[in-house]
Computed example of a mutant assay.
Amino acid sequence: MVSELTVSPRFFVLEKGALRSRYDVDADTAEPVNCEEGADCPKCGYPIGMMRWLPPYRIELVLHGEELGDYLETQGDDLLVSERFAQAFREDGLTGLEGFHPVQVGRVRQKRRGPKLTNIPQYLAVTACFGRAAVDVARSRIRYDKPPTCEECRAAGVDSIHGFTLEPGTWQGEDIFRPRGMQGRLVVSERFARFVERHGFTNMRLTPTEELVRDPLALGPPGPKPGSA
């Protein structure tokens, strides 16, 4: 009999590339910056999203590496993707991103000595949807400051993460989304991971959700739950 672990879909956390990498860059919104309030939980009213960026979409870049990649992060929940990424995303039929607003790139400051950068991609501003997939609290290794109380958003104070999983049956097939219980993280499907590898998109780091470790206070993983063997 095939186990549930074998047939369960795999998920990855999407982050920008590492600091001091070839594609290390800071993207800052440029004046005028217009924003509106982010999303709230429809059940308890807790804020689950950061401020949303509104037109005009203008940025300034500080390049610490050698060239600009296909994926950049800005303040808030907004993301920047290259035109070639956006085109492939649509052509391959992936889901979960919204917006695709053209962005005007102003000044590009290069921190490394070398020839002036001439190849500046066309970027588009996108946001990832809030998915129905929910963090499986019982099966994840998360140390909570304040455990979730709302069954809808499952928002909680998290001190450390030593791997997490999604509750079976809650994912609705999006290729990139923000899960309930961890709206501050971008989670992508296995199909998205293959898509990134196939096209060779840059400045994207994918970590299996069960291998993600974030422990800034060095608290270590949570101990066994009461009554467990």
Results as ranks from 00 to 15, higher is better:
Met1Ile: 11
Glu4Pro: 14
Glu4Met: 15
Ser8Tyr: 08
Phe12Tyr: 15
Phe12Gln: 04
Val13Thr: 12
Leu14Ile: 04
Glu15Gln: 15
Gly17Phe: 02
Arg20Val: 11
Arg22Ile: 14
Val25Phe: 03
Thr29Cys: 14
Glu31Tyr: 07
Val33Ser: 00
Asn34Pro: 04
Glu37Arg: 14
Gly38Asn: 02
Ala39Pro: 09
Asp40Ala: 12
Cys41Phe: 05
Cys41Trp: 02
Cys41Tyr: 05
Cys44Met: 06
Ile48His: 01
Met50Trp: 10
Met51Asp: 13
Pro56Ile: 02
Arg58Ala: 11
Ile59Glu: 00
Glu60Lys: 13
Val62Ile: 13
Leu63Asp: 07
Leu63Pro: 06
Leu63Gln: 11
Gly65Trp: 07
Asp70Ala: 06
Leu72Thr: 04
Leu72Ala: 06
Glu73Arg: 15
Thr74Asp: 08
Gln75Cys: 13
Gly76Pro: 02
Asp78Phe: 09
Val81Glu: 06
Ser82Ala: 14
Arg84Tyr: 05
Phe85Tyr: 09
Ala86Ser: 15
Ala86Met: 10
Ala88Leu: 06
Ala88Pro: 05
Glu91Phe: 11
Gly93Pro: 08
Gly96Met: 01
Leu97Val: 09
His101Leu: 10
His101Gly: 06
Val105Lys: 00
Val108Pro: 03
Gln110Ser: 14
Lys111Met: 15
Arg112Glu: 08
Arg112Pro: 03
Arg112Cys: 09
Arg112Val: 08
Arg112Thr: 10
Lys116Leu: 13
Ile120Ser: 04
Ile120Asn: 02
Ile120Ala: 04
Pro121Met: 07
Tyr123Lys: 07
Ala125Thr: 11
Phe130Ala: 05
Gly131Met: 03
Gly131Ser: 10
Gly131Gln: 01
Ala133His: 01
Ala134Phe: 00
Ala134Lys: 08
Ala138Lys: 12
Arg139Lys: 12
Ser140Asp: 01
Arg141Ile: 03
Arg143Phe: 05
Tyr144Ala: 08
Cys150Asn: 08
Cys153Asp: 00
Ala155Asp: 15
Val158Lys: 07
Ser160Asp: 03
Ile161Asn: 01
Ile161Arg: 03
His162Ser: 03
Gly163Gln: 01
Leu166Lys: 00
Trp171Lys: 00
Gln172Cys: 11
Asp175Phe: 04
Asp175Thr: 06
Arg180Met: 08
Met182Asn: 10
Met182Thr: 00
Met182Gly: 13
Arg185Asp: 09
Arg185Phe: 13
Arg191Ile: 01
Phe192Ile: 07
Phe192Ser: 06
Ala193Ile: 08
Arg198Gln: 13
His199Asp: 09
His199Tyr: 14
His199Asn: 13
Gly200Trp: 01
Asn203Glu: 09
Met204Glu: 06
Leu206Met: 04
Leu206Trp: 08
Pro208His: 06
Val213Phe: 07
Arg214Trp: 14
Arg214Asp: 15
Asp215Ile: 10
Ala218Ser: 15
Leu219Asp: 07
Pro222Val: 07
Pro222Ser: 02
Gly223His: 06
Pro224Met: 03
Pro224Gln: 07
Pro226Phe: 07
Ser228Tyr: 07
Ser228Thr: 14
